[in-house]
């Protein structure tokens, strides 16, 4: 079949088993971070760690509460989330569509892949000056930077996922007389999905990173602006609150993808529903 170029057969991937043993000892893992917090608080209280370098944990906590009550933090989070979300959707759609174009035919691969490989070599944070020249300092350059960052991991993983689909299953599809559309729908896309989900997690990681970088450079709203603004006034507590929110958001989106994985990859051993 010249329809879809597939690799030679590969082993079925298996999930790593997660035993209940890990949960039993989980609370032990909280001990050392807690100790660190206590030491940090003591160091701050005794003046060993000056506030202009790093605020005390208690101060940071109360600042977080204040910023939330004043509405500054929720507004900043809303703005930043919106940037990531739009950038992610645009970049994700572009990455996956390009991967389908490249993965499903040789002609598509010849058209798309060389360009993607060349663009991938660009240090995309280095594009910020150009983006500012092209798009000014509004929302567009930030969203586009996120989109660009997101599109590559999704492109690369989906493309290799499609090419990695077991060639033996493509033969089965042929003996079952599946049409090209059915082959893509029932064999190729589900076969590429595990790798696409790996790409999705990588993409979310770089999406937040791209946002942080973009917001550092030029922003008048959002989390990055809040952090930058705090720097001017030596408010290390606000900076740390901003950083913590970034990581919490990153962890939350990662958890969503893992939930998605669990549902979408239930057919793998170890993920049995």
């Amino acid at each position: 079949m010249s329809v879809v170029e597939l690799a030679r057969p590969v082993e079925t991937p298996r999930a790593t088993p997660k035993g209940p043993r890990r949960r039993v000892t989980a609370w032990h893992r909280w001990l050392s971070p807690l100790a660190l917090l206590v030491i940090w608080q003591i160091a701050s209280a005794t003046g060993l760690l000056p506030e202009r370098l790093l605020a005390a944990p208690a101060t940071i906590a109360s600042t977080a509460v204040e910023l939330t009550q004043a509405g500054t933090l929720p507004t900043a989070i809303g703005v930043s989330l919106q940037r990531v979300l739009i950038g992610f959707l645009v970049g994700g759609a572009a990455g996956i569509l390009l991967a389908l174009a490249a993965g499903l035919s040789r002609a598509g691969e010849n058209a798309v892949d060389p360009i993607m490989q060349a663009l991938r070599a660009l240090p995309f944070f280095g594009l910020i000056p150009l983006f500012i020249l092209w798009f000014g300092i509004g929302e567009e350059p930030k969203i586009l930077l996120v989109a660009l960052a997101v599109s590559f991991p999704l492109y690369l993983n989906t493309f290799s996922g499609i090419r990695g689909v077991d060639g033996k299953l493509a033969e089965v599809a042929k003996t079952l007389k599946l049409s090209r559309g059915q082959l893509i729908r029932h064999i190729v896309l589900p076969g590429a999905l595990p790798q696409t989900l790996v790409g999705l997690r990588q993409a979310l990681g770089v999406a937040w990173l791209a946002l942080i970088v973009a917001e550092q450079v030029n922003a008048t709203t959002g989390l990055g602006y809040m952090i930058n603004d705090a720097r001017e006034f030596l408010r290390t507590d606000v900076i740390v609150v901003g950083l913590l929110v970034y990581s919490a958001l990153g962890l939350a989106t990662d958890a969503i993808v893992r939930l998605l994985e669990r549902r979408a990859l239930a057919w793998r051993r170890g993920f049995l529903a």
Partner: peptide, 15 residues
């Protein structure tokens, strides 16, 4: 050569 992401019945009826 069953399709691993399709339940048994869906494998039988595939196509």
């Amino acid at each position: 050569r069953l399709v691993p992401w399709k339940r048994l019945l869906a494998n039988i009826t595939l196509g």
